[in-house]
Simulated scan of single mutants.
Amino acid sequence: MIFTEREIEYLGGQRIGRLATLHPNGTLQVSPVGFRYNQELRTIDIGGRDMAASRKFRNVLANGKVAFVVDDVPSVDPWQVRCLEIRGWGEALTEAAGSNAPLPGPIIRVHPRRIISFGVDPGNPSAGKRDVPEA
């Protein structure tokens, strides 16, 4: 399993994340994006208006390097932060693939290779920092 059940539940309850991509000239771009967890493929699918014309789409098309973060502060008293960071590789797809694709294309599909999780699944020893085996 790539994500724990609580991480999947957390992703399902959030609407906005931040996608980092690498521009061909070496600069980084971070963009707020809408997303959905693709249960069939165990990926993060990112969509949006005019996605294929966006710099982030072209960056992913050029090199596939991505990181994605979802976080929030559900309480300030007591202070509580939750974060799920996903490092991996991205695909720039003109149409969403998979029979249960949660978003229509064009999309950016994030394939996790490393997951850093805190505050999302406390008490679970499989949460935290972990590498995802190649499929």
Rank of each mutant, 00 (worst) to 15 (best):
A135V: 15
Y10I: 00
L11Q: 10
D45G: 07
G128P: 08
P106Y: 02
I8C: 10
Q80I: 15
G47Y: 06
D50N: 07
V76T: 07
A92M: 02
H23N: 13
D71N: 04
E91I: 03
L61N: 10
K56G: 02
G12M: 04
A135W: 15
V33W: 11
F68E: 00
K56H: 04
R18Q: 08
A67Q: 04
V81E: 13
I16N: 01
D77Q: 08
E95K: 12
P112K: 01
R36M: 11
V76L: 08
S126V: 13
A52D: 04
S117V: 01
T21C: 01
N124G: 08
A96H: 05
G17A: 05
P78S: 00
R55T: 13
Q39N: 11
E9A: 13
R49M: 15
W79K: 06
A101C: 05
A101H: 06
V132D: 05
A101W: 13
Y37D: 02
N63C: 11
L28N: 15
S99L: 14
M1A: 15
L28V: 10
N63I: 07
H23Y: 06
I16D: 02
P32Q: 12
V66M: 00
L93K: 05
N25D: 13
V73P: 11
I115T: 00
N124E: 08
D45A: 06
E40W: 05
P125L: 06
I46S: 01
A92R: 02
R36G: 05
I116W: 10
M51R: 01
R87N: 14
E91T: 01
A127F: 04
I44H: 00
N100S: 14
H23G: 04
N100M: 11
P112G: 03
T21D: 00
R36H: 03
S126L: 09
P78D: 08
K129P: 09
S99I: 08
F3L: 04
F68A: 03
S75P: 08
R18A: 04
V33K: 01
R55G: 14
R15Y: 14
D71Y: 08
R36D: 04
Q29A: 14
P104I: 14
